[in-house]
Design a protein around this nucleic acid. Sequence first.
DNA 1: TTGCGGCGTAAGGAAAACGTCAAGATCGCC
DNA 2: GGCGATCTTGACGTTTTCCTTACGCCGCAA
Lengths: 225, 225
Amino acid sequence: MLVVDDEASIRRALRINLTARDYTVHVAEDGRSGLRSAASHRPDVVILDLGLPDMDGVEVIRGLRGWSQSPIIVLSAREREHDKVDALDAGADDYVTKPFGMDELLARLRAATRRAMSAAADEPVVATEHFTVELAAKRVTDVTGREIRLTPTEWEIVELLVRNDGRLVSSRQILTQVWGEGYQAETHYLRVYLAQIRRKLEPDSSRPRYFRTEPGMGYRFVSSG
Amino acid sequence: MLVVDDEASIRRALRINLTARDYTVHVAEDGRSGLRSAASHRPDVVILDLGLPDMDGVEVIRGLRGWSQSPIIVLSAREREHDKVDALDAGADDYVTKPFGMDELLARLRAATRRAMSAAADEPVVATEHFTVELAAKRVTDVTGREIRLTPTEWEIVELLVRNDGRLVSSRQILTQVWGEGYQAETHYLRVYLAQIRRKLEPDSSRPRYFRTEPGMGYRFVSSG
DNA sequence: TTGCGGCGTAAGGAAAACGTCAAGATCGCC
DNA sequence: GGCGATCTTGACGTTTTCCTTACGCCGCAA
């Protein structure tokens, strides 16, 4: 958790309150050091004051959103609607007007982290012990870095499952997403393709570890455990 | 998109503004019809006024969160911090105080849908001392993090009971929801499946702690106490 | 005690879902 | 047209789930 605010009293109040609730808190007093701290500590939430001395708050949001998907909660004395709109559209997750109550802030924090929990599936790269899936590049590589070739259909299934790491994806969902609306009954396709995917990616394709079958329900990719 | 508000002028203003921006808008003027509309139309966003004539707004949020993960934006004239905290903790995604500007609302709407898109599902989790149920992922894990496998029927029963944490669910309700209309007499199915569920999840299956029998009535899941 | 109704447990065969192999059918490209 | 890669389709064996039957326990009332 990173708090960026130029008012020392607010930094202090937040650090005390948040530390008491078991957050690990880093603080910064201007935009530049805030961005630097974010880059090194990779906070899972950012609380950001818009009225910073060195740069415009919206620029800080853009700087963060360049590489991070962590929730950003904006704190600001400005009531003007225009400011809120700009901040939210730049990628902020919430906007709280000063003066604010600590309970409200904590509640909004809970709401934001609750939402962000599964947003981790957005990560462009999912790595396992045996292979790595690069979603953006549409590539799967060996543990040695060698590319594993997937056919277009295989890739679509892998991508869908990997994007839902840990979550069960129903057979119908895979079929509609990959083949289209009219194919919800063709569960046989899935069996054939999952077999191919497993042959290419699983260390022991007869005992799947990553692409698991949940009989009667669907399939589930698990990257760890 | 569903708008639930008892003020006709607000319903009208929102319908016009949102329709103009290519949202498909349904409206409702009280909590009960709002929940009904949500159940049939499955909106991808809900805008909800807290001050409804027939039920408490927080109850409406809970009713929606029972089955839907769509973002809920709360609209309210109440400034009290306590109200905000309750609404957010019940599962609302954002809280806008009346009177509000249309631009701000639209910005918060964009922020909410943007988040919902990547976060596809914000994951409701029910944790007990002995196991954890992740509803969105359709997964039950051990206290050590190991997965406990449930069959489709077992999962449906567990999900139904867990979603009604603390509440009594009648045998008939379980039978109709899991097997269908014509199975209300097959209470034996329940005994068989509850036994299996308990064997898998209860620390001492002969003395159930989480999946309790209410003789003559039904079953009740209690996550704590 | 005996019988009855509601509940819990165990086990086996039928049915459904799944995995595998391999042979067509398609498609795009040279 | 011919070729290779990919996608469909079919057949068959295996695994998993589901339903059913049988039986035991308990409390209660006859």
